[in-house]
């Protein structure tokens, strides 16, 4: 990968009060770099979903952002617990969110499918007891235009 890591954001498990901060910052950085709006919007939706998954389902983790002309990459890694059945997790509407989380408006089982839809490259790996890693690349439709 040629792009330098611009920034790395730590996301804590259960931190609902600050949920959305990391994706908000990512959006800010992209705007400062002059990334086209349409691309920012896709990254914003995916980074918000992934950030909330870290808050809700993981034991905490990090989102690394790298930007290069024409594309944005998010590399996400958490410290567990891992996803037992990836195929199931990727299905629209499948969720293990608790009733409390559902009360907050999450848990529709749309996060992962949404990320996949918005990213041009999407790869997910998970190992029980170790953690989950997600790689997403978003390309500007104009190719080089940042």
């Amino acid at each position: 990968m040629s792009g330098a890591i611009c920034e790395s954001y730590a996301v804590e498990a259960g931190a609902f009060g600050t949920a959305g901060e990391a994706s908000g910052k990512i959006k800010g950085v992209l705007r400062k770099l002059g990334v086209p709006s349409a691309l920012i919007r896709r990254v914003a939706v995916a980074s918000y979903e992934v950030e909330l998954n870290l808050v809700i389902h993981s034991l905490g983790g990090t989102i690394d952002l790298s930007v290069e002309p024409g594309s944005v990459v998010l590399d996400v890694a958490d410290r567990g617990p891992g996803i037992p059945d990836l195929a199931l997790a990727m299905q629209e509407g499948w969720s293990t969110a608790s009733d409390e989380v559902r009360m907050l408006g999450f848990g529709a089982g749309m996060g992962l499918p949404n990320m996949k839809r918005n990213a041009d490259e999407f790869a997910i790996q998970s190992e029980m007891g170790v953690g989950t890693r997600i790689h997403m690349r978003f390309r500007s439709p104009e190719g080089t235009g940042t």
Binding site: G28, R31, K32, G34, V67
Partner: peptide, 13 residues
């Protein structure tokens, strides 16, 4: 684009 740091991507980075 009021917050854009620079027209040039490399300079902005």
């Amino acid at each position: 684009e009021t917050v854009r740091l620079d027209e040039d991507f490399k300079t902005a980075m």
